[in-house]
Write a protein that binds this DNA or RNA. Structure first.
Length: 953
RNA sequence: GCCUCGUUGGUGAAACGGCAAACACAACAGACUUAGAAUCUGGGAACUGGGGGUUCGAAUCCCUCACGAGGCACCA
């Protein structure tokens, strides 16, 4: 790591010359390389699918192998899961702990476009680099199970699962996926009356939405295929997609942030395209319910709940009075049917199909102008100006079914066409948006909640007692909801309704580097390829530029696309989510070429027991994985419905950037404390040439040719840098590479230091400063096994009471900590133990042996080396985690803090088995307490055995 | 605007409602030394973000405000 490392190594070199086998840089390197080779040779991490032991599945979110390689933030979660995996092995579990690569994806393709290197080539290079970096850290992965999503042997089964979705529909009656063949049977015997089209807007050529078995018989092949398409879980449809012109591709909803693309921040517009989608909306309720049975953090569940966006309410029909049309009715969706008498206007989305037919002559121009305005507005503008109130009156009126009141019908872009029915009832006294709308257009406001409404702003309460609400008067709103829904259902003018914000997932990408869709088009309709023809391999190509017409780069390969005169392939590929949606299943049986994974293996390994990864995958990856597992479960391929039993989100490790201040227009750099005296520009400087805050000015001059002539204005003889916490990124020069840390301190120190930084789930800035403490600890641990000359020195003497207590306290704590994923406190506990054993001068086998096993999950290399020095031939991985013995921890007495009114004033020692009454007597009689009570008896004495005594005066 | 999670010495952080700050880093002092950035020894450092409540007792539970991080954002 450049300059600062030089002085760091000094101590090692010096000691090396004195001692034989000190825990020095060279020795560490030797040990770590030796054992990595040895483990590899002995295949110690290879896991079998058959075992008498209970299973444990510890998984990391597999990485996308980017060209930048790993920085110290990446391995944080991997280290944690590796500790768990190693611990569980020692605890007698058969542990599956695999790793692979999420190797399809956009960056490799962008890189290919920019640098002319084929994604397959750059991906392979990147994987090799990642693997090299990962291997150095000493993970216990079973690499024989590695999967890569871009490998045809793997994506064969991604395509196969896609075809299962294509060949399935969601039976709402049974709340599960079934085969299209089962749907055909239903159509043949009863038509579709019991299973209406999932998309309410679809109509048959006849204009109807329901057909009989007779109708079905009369339908031709094309219409039948079209009908299937309405039900399939993977389906093609013309949908509004997020089209990104700059990227030349369609993006999923979760890839669009505030109207711009997640990658690159390019504008995104809505565009109609024939796209593959997954009917995830059918699973909205199950995805929501499933959250209750899995162990995810509250915030993670909250994000998913938000995304699914369930709301319960009612659809209500209102008859319309319009100049040019009769017998029309309008359906609105509301979560607050109880406010039905507070409705003062209706609002339709500008795109609502009724708009054309209900506009009055007088309002025609105003409405046309408004529609033009809405059309002219981009998605970005619309999002940016959500507060802007716009709208137009249609000239039509709706009739309140309960009191016959006629209420004006407006259009406005604040009502979204895509949600609910695209129409709402405006209740200004109870809804802020409606209220603003009413105020803006000076519409009258009916108050149905009395003093709960102040005339200034809406009050969305459910606790108010209704007024001006006829048969609802005097009823609390929350209770009125049900009453109105029942009434609406009785009158046949509406029904209970549940809506979800979540949309079906767009599954087509206009990209090259992804899985081709395993379908063949005949007359525009896709047909599944047969399983024996899978995988449909991605054809070699050097032309990755998107066509820009909405077709993917594969469209450039005419021979591949056009199979023959009548058959065509899809030019799109699947999103990266596809390969990642099931890789955890493949790990159970990664080389199976008959099935996506064998049933026995799937049943044995079952759910992932602990899944560790970043919270940024909360929505996409985790929801799609959960969906695919539920579909495979429904189709009978799995016996579990949730892929991940427990999820832990490791915190982000942020960079700790350093700045120098250049006086404008000069080569002079001024120290941070003096920069106010000059006009300066702030420049990032490589953190690796800064020690703490002090810049190494010589290294700085060599860093970049521009700075060779730099001059410095120092304070106290030092150049002090500015600092800021930022994302770890090459462009900020704040990246710390684990390779460099390993080079200086070894992998064991890196592993333990990453854990020591703080709770796994907390985000924290990387600061290498504290690493010395962890390193010193490992050296002290090493020294317990050696004498002053560096020779192995282990005694077979019996351990003392104190030594046993130190050991067993640590075993207990470490065990509890790993079970609670609290790794930082384990490291502390190891330090305490080693400090104690050090001062006890303990070199005893009976203490060191169990301690070495307990440490092995954290620092596997040093543990293995010392294990060997203890005389073991078999690897420490096969050892058993030591059991702690409560007997060694038992104390006979306890020094009680004696508090007066909650404030500690003294300490007194009592036997732990002393009855409370005796303690009380002794405490009250004590001189100290007597001084406070001045002889009077205390009001109360609280004694918590083994904890505290509190005297209340 | 709404939701979730946070806020403890100079720093990273510990602490089943029971002695606040364990364990480290940094700084400081001392020892060994030609020398110290190493090594060893040693004490310092804090009204647990503010206010209120529950309790014999609150960092911990409840309310409220401030600040920070993340998510959602016209979803009726």
């Amino acid at each position: 790591m450049g300059f600062s490392a030089d002085w760091l190594f000094l101590p090692f070199q010096r000691q090396n010359s004195i001692k034989m086998a000190d825990y020095s840089k060279d020795e560490i390197k030797r040990i770590e390389e030796k054992w990595r080779k040895e483990w590899e040779k002995r295949q110690v991490y290879k896991v079998e699918n058959q075992s008498d032991k209970p299973k444990y599945y510890a998984l990391d979110m597999f990485p996308y192998p980017s060209g930048a390689g790993l920085h110290v933030g990446h391995p944080l979660g991997y280290i944690a899961s590796d500790i768990v995996a190693r611990y569980k092995r020692l605890k007698g579990f058969n542990v599956l702990h695999p790793m692979g690569f999420d190797a399809f994806g956009l960056p490799a393709e962008q890189y290919a476009i920019e640098h002319g290197i084929h994604p397959a080539v750059s991906t392979e290079q990147n994987i090799r680099n990642f693997r090299r970096q990962l291997d150095k850290i000493g993970f216990s992965y079973d690499w024989s199970r590695e999967v890569r999503t871009c490998d045809p042997k793997y994506y064969k089964w991604t395509q196969w699962i896609f075809l299962q979705l294509f060949d399935s529909w969601y039976n709402r009656k049974k709340q599960k996926a079934e085969r299209i063949a089962d749907l055909v049977k239903i159509f043949e015997t009863e038509g579709n009356s019991a299973h209406p089209f999932p998309n309410g807007k679809y109509t048959l050529p006849s204009g109807k939405t329901v057909f009989t078995p007779g109708d079905w018989k009369s339908f031709d092949e094309k219409l039948r295929q079209d009908i299937f398409m309405q039900y399939r879980l993977a389906y093609l449809a013309y949908t509004d997609v997020n089209w990104c012109e700059a990227l030349g591709t369609v993006l999923a909803n979760d890839e669009v942030i505030n109207g711009v693309s997640y990658r690159g921040g390019f504008p995104v517009v809505k565009r109609q395209m024939r796209q593959w989608s997954l009917r995830i909306t059918e699973y909205a309720e199950r995805l929501l319910q499933g959250l209750d049975e899995i162990d995810f953090s509250d915030s993670m569940k909250e994000i998913q709940r938000n995304w699914i966006g369930k709301s319960v309410g009612a659809k209500i029909n209102f008859n319309l009075v319009a100049e040019r049309a009769k017998d029309l009715s309008l359906t609105v969706f509301t979560t607050r049917p109880d406010t039905i008498f507070g409705v003062d206007f209706m609002v339709l989305a500008p795109e609502h199909e009724l708009v054309k037919s209900i506009v009055s002559e007088a309002q025609q121009k105003e409405v046309d102008d408004y529609l033009k305005y809405v059309e002219s507005r981009s998605e970005v503008e619309r999002m940016a100006e959500v507060k802007k109130i716009t709208g137009a009156f249609t000239g039509a009126f709706a009739v309140n079914p309960f009191n016959g009141r006629q209420i004006p019908v407006w259009i406005s872009e604040y009502v979204l066409a895509g949600y609910g029915t695209g129409a709402i009832m405006g209740v200004p006294c109870g809804d802020e948006r409606d209220h603003k709308f009413a105020k803006h257009f000076k519409l009258p406001i009916t108050n149905i909640i009395g003093s709960h409404y102040n005339g200034e702003e809406a009050n969305p309460t459910k606790d108010a007692i209704l007024e001006n609400s006829e048969f609802l008067n005097g009823i609390v709103m929350s209770e009125a909801i049900d009453i109105v829904v029942k009434k609406v259902e009785q009158l046949g003018i509406g029904q209970r309704q549940v809506n979800y914000k979540m949309r079906d997932a767009g599954w087509s990408r206009q990209r090259y580097w992804g899985e081709p869709f395993p379908v063949v088009y005949r007359e525009m309709m896709p047909y599944a390829m047969s399983e024996k023809d899978l995988p449909l391999e991605l054809p070699p190509s050097d032309n990755f530029k998107p066509s820009g017409t909405g077709e993917g780069p594969l469209a450039n390969l005419s021979d591949w696309i056009h199979i023959n005169d009548r058959e065509k392939r899809d030019s799109n590929t699947m999103p990266t989510h596809a390969g990642a949606a099931w890789y955890f299943l493949r790990f159970t049986d990664p080389h199976n070429d008959k099935e996506f994974a064998g049933r026995k293996a799937l049943d044995y390994w079952n759910q992932v027991d602990v899944y560790i990864g970043g919270s940024e995958h909360a929505v996409a990856h985790l929801l799609y994985s959960r969906l695919w597992v539920k579909v495979l479960y429904d189709l009978g391929y799995l016996n579990f419905q949730e892929p991940f039993k427990k999820l832990i989100n490791q915190g982000k490790i942020t960079g700790d950037s350093r700045f120098v201040y250049r006086i404008r227009g000069t080569h002079k750099f001024v120290s941070a404390g003096l920069k106010k005296q000059y006009e300066t520009d702030e420049l990032h400087v490589d953190v690796n040439i800064v020690n703490g805050l002090e810049l190494d000015t010589e290294a700085f001059k060599k860093w970049k040719p521009d700075f060779a002539k730099a001059e410095f204005i120092l304070e106290d003889g030092k150049y002090i840098c500015g600092a800021a916490i930022e994302k770890m990124s090459k462009s900020y020069f704040n990246v710390v590479n684990p390779d460099d840390i390993i080079e200086s301190y070894g992998a064991d120190t890196l592993r333990m230091y990453e854990m020591f930084l703080g709770p796994l789930e907390a985000s924290k800035p990387w600061n290498t400063n504290g690493i010395d403490g962890v390193f010193k600890f490992l050296r002290k641990f090493w020294n317990l096994f050696h004498d002053a000359n560096g020779n192995v020195s282990i005694s077979d003497e019996a351990a003392s009471k104190e030594e046993l207590k130190a050991l067993h306290k640590t075993i207990r704590k470490v065990e509890q900590d790993i079970e609670n994923f609290s790794f930082n406190t384990s490291v502390s506990e190891f330090m305490i133990c080693v400090n104690e054993l050090g001062s006890l001068k303990c070199h005893k086998r009976s203490v060191l042996e169990p301690l070495t096993i307990a440490l092995a999950p954290y620092a596997p290399h040093i543990a293995e080396e010392l294990w060997e020095k203890l005389g073991h031939k078999e690897t420490i991985l096969k050892a058993s985690f030591p059991a702690y013995n409560e007997a060694y921890l038992k104390e006979n007495s306890f020094e009680y803090p004696i508090s007066i009114n909650g404030k500690v004033r003294a300490k007194m020692e009592f036997a732990l088995d002393m009855p409370k009454e005796d303690i009380e007597k002794l405490v009250v009689a004590s001189e100290m307490v007597q001084k406070w009570t001045e002889g009077k008896p205390p009001k109360k004495v609280i004694i918590v055995p083994g904890k505290i005594v509190n005297v209340v005066l």
